[in-house]
Amino acid sequence: MTAAPKIKMTGVKKAFGPKVVLDGFDLEVLPRESVVIMGGSGSGKSVALKCILGLVTPDDGHIEIDGVEVTNLSRKDREAVNAKIGMLFQNAALFDSLSVWENIAFGLIQGRKMARDKARDIAHEKLAQVGMGADVGALSPAELSGGMRKRVGLARAIAGDPDIIFFDEPTTGLDPIMGHVIDDLIVKCVREVGATALSITHDMASARRISDRMAMLFKGKNIWQGPTSSVDESGNDHVDQFINGRADGPIQMEVFKP
């Protein structure tokens, strides 16, 4: 018997003015599964993620988390849902005004009203989990390199031992070695926390490393999904072109040619 999906998106539509970004997008993510949504820049991957998080309200369709419809939740109910979600933003989105440990412990202190001392200990534990020493905790985010920021962002995402973790372009802007390190940390942390992971990326090497299953978003629709091991034999021209990074194929980039 198949487990009930942790996240279920059905017929999700979102347009910004005349630009249709999601046009009936469907996706299911099973518990403890790691799924990557791949797609070109501007294809709507981030919007799909933001719809699940409640940061963007879809025009139509349904989004369920643990079987509960989350598209029209009250602010309070949304906060309760978000309390079991962790998110690693593309540029980490660390709070400039707080130190590294306060960033990691933010959800614990503000959301769960945990005592600062206890939250600091957990922040240091999480820093160790992403391969950083406790001394980093006292630094300000402005003092960190890109790779360090991502690791702190990851530590913040797993600080509350969430059920679901979202990763928005986890390796963008990093060198290949640091990208690999982050991918390994993502896999390790997701396993340790026992979370369900949903990532969006156009970095295929990263996608292959962190996912069990992939889905391809094109023109607002999920045009293919399958196990990561079968992505090279997808039989889908769009997927083939995308994973091989070919300029020619059914996906045409809008490039002005004089």
């Binding site: 933001k50 998080l53 409640g54 940061l55 602010r75 906060e79 309760a80 978000n82 309390a83 979600i85 962790g86 998110m87 933003f89 593309q90 540029n91 989105a93 660390l94 709070f95 400039d96 933010f106 959800g107 503000q110 959301g111 913040r156």
Partner: peptide, 22 residues
Amino acid sequence: GTMRVTEQIDALNTLATNPFKY
């Protein structure tokens, strides 16, 4: 504004903190 364009306000939301309150 900087918090908005660097997604720090979105991060507040995902950390179950209301940006209006905070």
